[in-house]
């Protein structure tokens, strides 16, 4: 419980870490209609394309220094040898990032969805999908970040980005099914399935990578 509170306070005090990505997300969502014609009827069609890409890029931005600061000041090394299991600490870290960045982005995203499509049904249905997706994205990008930890570059996240592209296909299909009033729960179940695998595997893999970095 202590570790959750500790991580939460640490991220909350670093407002650049969590407020920055949220602001970037809002800016993308506000700026993209300016590039298309205002009267364009297809705005709600392209909205979802921009939404998923914005979530993807913002999560990439958000995880940029998830381990870097702890690595530089040596606390990651202390975590690695402490009594509490190291993968657990990492999963807590990722969870806190999702709580402070992923959840607000999901809420803002579904509000934008309401604004763009004028459909309350769509906005409510898109919310859980956004929650699950942002959690998956944060997990995978944390993995990428751990890979290039000492480099301090975006290379690791760029390398893991292709892994998420099949997920975008699923998201596109889910939106189409919601739009056509079809049963979209299958897609939610698929996303949940992916999440349930990732949520256990990624912290284990990351702890292995970080231990290799610390050697």
């Amino acid at each position: 419980m202590n570790i959750i509170k500790f991580e939460l306070l640490k991220l909350r005090n670093k407002s650049r870490g969590w407020l920055g990505p949220i602001l970037v997300f809002i800016l993308i969502m506000v700026a993209f209609p300016l590039t298309v014609e205002i009267s364009n009827k297809d705005l709600d069609q392209s909205f979802f394309a921009v939404l998923w890409i914005a979530v993807l890029l913002v999560m990439m931005l958000a995880t940029e220094d998830i381990f870097l600061e702890d690595f530089n000041d040596g606390s990651l090394e202390q975590f690695a040898i402490s009594d509490i299991s190291f993968p657990y600490i990492i999963s807590v870290k990722i969870f806190i990032y999702w709580l402070l960045i992923g959840v607000p982005i999901s809420i803002i995203g579904s509000l934008f969805c309401l604004g763009f499509t004028n459909s309350g049904n769509l906005a409510i249905n898109i919310f859980p999908i956004l929650l699950i997706t942002s959690y998956i994205f944060i997990n995978v990008f944390s993995f990428g970040n751990a890979l290039s930890l000492t480099k301090g570059s975006v290379l690791g996240t760029l390398v893991t980005l292709p892994l998420l592209l099949p997920l975008l296909i699923v998201l596109g299909k889910a939106v189409i099914s919601i739009n056509l009033n079809l049963n979209y729960l299958g897609f939610v179940a698929l996303l949940l399935g992916v999440l349930s695998i990732i949520i256990f595997l990624i912290p284990l893999i990351i702890s292995y990578i970080i231990r290799a970095h610390l050697e």
Binding site: F143, L147, S148, K151, S153, L155, G156, L158, V159, T160, P162, L163, I205, Y208, I209, A212, H213, E215
Partner: peptide, 30 residues
């Protein structure tokens, strides 16, 4: 793109032993 990413990840490390380890993990995840 994955193949290209794997090559660039490996080449970004000067320490070959670490690079091998990270490359193998990424290949397995990918």
């Amino acid at each position: 793109i994955m193949y290209l990413g794997l090559i660039s990840l490996h080449d970004s490390f000067s320490n070959h032993e670490k690079a091998d380890k990270f490359l193998s993990i990424l290949v397995l995840v990918g």
